[in-house]
Design a protein around this nucleic acid. Structure first.
Lengths: 413, 413
DNA sequence: CCACTTTGGCAACGCTGTTGCCAAAGTGCA
DNA sequence: TGCACTTTGGCAACAGCGTTGCCAAAGTGG
């Protein structure tokens, strides 16, 4: 039907009217979301998008008809007819985010706004075998969805309607595929799909795992398709750090939209999620963000990866010895390398190790970056360092955004 | 006139029919260029872009009418009417690339194809003062253009026609501004503009220099506007490494289009140009690519930047001592950090230091990356290392691409 | 109460890529 | 040599996008 989609194989894509329409619709939807409960007027939308007011009127009329947007009062008059305020209808769509870690499972259900409306959390051993893990995930997801959204509750408009059409997202599309109607969660109309985030190296585009560190039995497992078939809804898979970064890019405070940052995660290992201009940088093979095995001490102590002087062994080693200040200094040097190389706006820190002594890390990393900026006379001052918001839910909520983000035109998920 | 352009201030941009048209036109033009002298048929264009054959026919008809494309024979029949082959008309447009280095000046003139059709090269001291430098640049540019293109030679279609319209490129637009008609090079119709590449930190978007290392008198100098006013054509300014990277992204051998790579330049200093998915990554403040002051030896020898253990001081120090192998090993470690962090496809090496012992560097860096890939069991094997093509002209030719690339829809120059 | 300002919908429009159709230009077999 | 068949690619009509011109609706201010 839509040739634009079929011809996509890495090459550049031509755009037709359908693509144009969904692009602009996604843009408007994104601004509606960013406006939150406060809402935004048609004319403001026109100004921000560069579209004419009339075009915005047509687009918002469609969105209202489909249930994604609604009128919400009006602004004060400035001497003429007051502007009508529009807002997103958060209940018109939902997405599930799954955080699959080495020893625990967290499942959240969020609405279009990104607000969490349900959660499940428990222990789970990743090495327990595919069948057991998949079963646990499916049970948690289905239970949570049915509990929160009911059996066939529509919530609002039909998901997967006009909005995502023609988009180039990586959504699997299994939903429309050869699956018996009514199977799994296919009946829950407002459910857009399930995003899954987990550690190991993997292929985001295909949804296939490579070598989850320490669990060789997952090597080559087609997680996306396996889950999509069981659940009957689209599934997207990504690295945990990428999901977290996406979540932070979307819901970031003070205008993170369109900005660039690095999310450094200190947990069992040390990884990074990179966001440039609002979209997650995954690299050619979803391998970007290998921050922990950056060498910062030539011929330094041996790391378990086989190399010498990696940040991970230096930083986490110091942290394990209780030397948070030294760990922060080492992390700061590596972060400085990254900041200089990529010219980002902010560094966000997260993960268990950081949570144990947040102030020490923010200060320690900040000092190194400040000194660097001072030396270079950087325009705009030093790059700020902050603790990433949302704490332990950052990955799961970001995973849900793997499904939501394409609707809003942010990032090329 | 075009609201799309006025509303752009960092935020997302709505698209109208004009944007759609120029997007598709640029796409087709890009494929025509990539096809080279061999040409490409309408149906192939349709397949590659995802547009319908009829849409391609309309677009190519416009391009032929405007002089940018022409028919060039036909393919062998496969049982029906043979396909007509189309090709780019290189003479329909030209761009000047200026490489302004600390002690020399190189100016090249290239056609739409990127083929060099003229060159000037000489010594120039960057510290000689703005007036002297600008004068020398303008003299070289004007002399080269008039010598190669003549006083008012059209070459082909009018530059700046329907193609770039509605595009969001950073082209200055001074040409249409408040300049007396016929001033400078405004009369040379096929000339799209001048791209200037130089070392120091600078602001690509505004075309303003920051602190060219060692030449404080350039701090804050509005190079783009100053040159645009003198020459009477659009001017774009960028860092030398970015320009080189752009040039390599465009003219790269074996399908560099859409790929990701890092260009490491070892000259007076050590810098990098990054290309992700075919577009140059400049970062928030055109500061990306600060590769040389990456710390790879905690508390190592002091670098002139004030920090300790930077790659630059270690690598170039070893090179100065004649220890190319050690320099390559150090460079390899830093390159490995970069490759792991960004998951790129290729590493390209260039610059005087590398040119002195190319094999040693390719082998030394390659060994480090191979070992890293082996340890990680990287899918797809190790990242290849190669010498960047084009030698000493890489920056100047890339600078010219600052003007050409927007026409072809590659990168967001 | 009326002049004025501002919002935002209706209708006509221009332009995009798309679809249906068919002439043109080949091959291949009788 | 002729005819059936395949493939290319232009012409014309079309659907749908954002745009423009116009005007009713809904406020403020004197």
């Amino acid at each position: 039907m839509n040739r634009t989609r079929t011809a996509r194989s890495g090459g550049p894509a031509g755009a037709n009217l359908g693509v144009l329409r969904s692009h602009n619709t996604a843009l408007v939807l994104g601004l509606l979301r960013d406006a939150g409960t406060e809402g935004i007027s048609r004319l403001e939308l026109a100004e921000r998008t560069g579209l004419t007011p009339q075009a915005v009127s047509k687009i918002t009329a469609r969105l209202r008809e489909e249930g994604f947007a609604a009128e919400a009062g009006r602004r004060a008059s400035t001497g003429g007819k007051p502007r009508t305020v529009l807002r997103l209808v958060p209940e018109a769509g939902h997405a599930v985010g799954v955080h699959l870690d080495r020893d625990e499972l967290r499942v959240v259900l969020v609405d279009l706004d990104g607000t969490m409306v349900g959660e499940r959390h428990g222990e789970l051993h990743l090495g327990a075998g595919a069948e057991a893990v998949l079963g646990a995930v499916c049970e948690a997801v289905e239970g949570l969805v049915r509990e929160s959204l009911g059996e066939t509750t529509g919530g609002g408009a039909g998901a997967g309607g006009a909005v995502a059409e023609g988009g180039d997202g990586g959504v699997s599309g299994v939903r429309d595929g050869g699956l018996a109607a009514g199977a799994g969660l296919g009946g829950v109309r407002s459910l857009l799909g399930v995003g899954v985030a987990l550690p190991g190296p993997l292929d985001h585009a295909q949804g296939v795992l490579h070598r989850v560190t320490g669990f060789p039995e997952w090597d080559g497992f087609p997680l996306r398709d396996a889950l999509a078939e069981r659940l009957g809804v689209p599934v997207v898979v990504d690295k945990d750090t990428n999901a977290a970064a996406l979540g932070l890019a979307v819901g970031g405070e003070e205008g993170a939209a369109g900005r660039s940052f690095a999310y450094l995660h200190l947990g069992t290992g040390l990884g990074a999620g990179l966001v440039f201009g609002g979209s997650v940088h995954r690299g050619a093979r979803t391998g970007a963000g290998e921050f922990g095995h950056q060498v910062i001490q030539l011929d330094g102590p041996r790391c378990e990866c086989g190399n010498r002087g990696c940040v991970e062994v230096l930083c986490l080693g110091a942290a394990a010895r209780g030397e948070a200040a030294e760990a922060a200094r080492v992390l700061g040097v590596a972060a400085g390398n990254l900041v200089g190389l990529l010219d980002i706006d902010v560094v966000l820190l997260g993960g268990r190790t950081v949570a144990a002594a947040p102030e020490a890390y923010v200060q320690g990393v900040g000092e190194v970056l400040d000194a660097q900026a001072l030396r270079e006379g950087a325009s705009g001052g030093p790059v700020p360092v902050r603790i990433a918001p949302r704490g332990e839910r950052v990955v799961a909520e970001g995973a849900a955004q793997l499904l939501l983000a394409p609707l809003f035109g942010r990032g090329d998920v």
